[in-house]
């Protein structure tokens, strides 16, 4: 039996909003450690990895590890039926062919129950090496979202370069070009507004903005986003997931293969 209860059901709604347009079908791996998912987009250009720790749930029971394969747009449609303040409980019996979602409204007697069909998916699992990166940048997630959205007006790709204590996002296209330069901020008065840059070596690399704009759909999950870059390896864009108390619940990590020079 698998059962996971989340009083802040909105977190699960936000997670699905952040992945459903990138990946159609994926499997949740549920174990005593928690729920995790790893999937590539259909073009195999990017990969998303989600982790929700067992102790972040308000109740978590997983008698034996289960793989819950599902259509994420179906799951997302069902989660739209839950209110933002609802408690969400996921339930799956061992060897069942569906997952049950129970939504409970706060301070009300209303509960609703939905079922989503499970699928047997042929998932490829990729091993991601834990390597140090040349550049790590932490910045406000809304700023990253804005930069990606603005630069997609100009071109299809962004060139990210980092030198000393600044990071530069540049795009060019038929209409012209645009650049956004961010410098490390000095004060830590409001940590969520800060930009911090740690650089081992300068870097310059290009990425498709279409994917970065998909990743930015995770913005409501976290006030800060972390970018990690090294020469000739995928970019990592990470949003940590915290609950209202600020406790660490897990993360969404997106990996994006670079573009090579035209």
């Amino acid at each position: 039996m698998f059962e996971a209860k989340l009083i802040q059901g909105a977190i699960l709604k936000k997670i699905l909003d952040a992945i459903k347009d990138l990946v159609n079908e994926a499997s949740w791996d549920c174990s005593s450690q928690g729920m995790s998912l790893q999937a590539m987009d259909t073009s195999h250009v990017s990969l998303v990895a989600v982790q929700m720790k067992a102790d972040g749930f308000d109740k978590y029971r997983c008698d034996r590890s289960v793989t819950l394969g599902m259509n994420l747009s179906s799951l997302s449609k069902i989660l739209k039926c839950a209110g933002n303040d609802d408690t969400i409980t996921l339930k799956a019996p061992d060897d069942g062919d569906k997952i049950t979602l129970v939504f409970e409204a706060k301070n009300e007697s209303e509960t609703s129950e939905y079922e989503v069909k499970l699928m047997n998916l042929d998932s490829e699992y990729l091993g991601i090496p834990d390597t140090p990166y040349s550049v790590n940048v932490k910045m406000p997630s809304h700023k990253f979202q804005r930069i990606c959205r603005d630069l997609q007006q100009i071109g299809d790709a962004v060139t990210i370069s980092c030198a000393k204590d600044s990071i530069r996002f540049a795009a060019k296209g038929d209409l012209g070009s645009g650049t956004v330069n961010l410098c490390q901020t000095a004060s830590a008065d409001k940590p969520e507004d800060s930009v911090s840059i740690s650089m081992q070596e300068p870097i310059i690399q290009s990425f498709a903005l279409k994917y970065l704009n998909h990743f930015a759909k995770a913005t409501p999950l976290s006030p800060q986003v972390s970018l990690s870059l090294s020469p000739d390896v995928p970019l990592v864009v990470e949003y940590s997931i915290t609950d209202d108390d600020g406790s660490d619940f897990g993360y969404i990590r997106y990996y994006l293969a670079p573009k090579i020079d035209e």
Binding site: H44, L47, L126, G127, I128, A208, V233, A257, K259
Partner: peptide, 14 residues
């Protein structure tokens, strides 16, 4: 897009 690399070039299948 011939300039776009694929993600599975970088990570090994488990």
């Amino acid at each position: 897009d011939k300039y776009q690399l694929k993600i599975d070039q970088f990570f090994k299948k488990m």
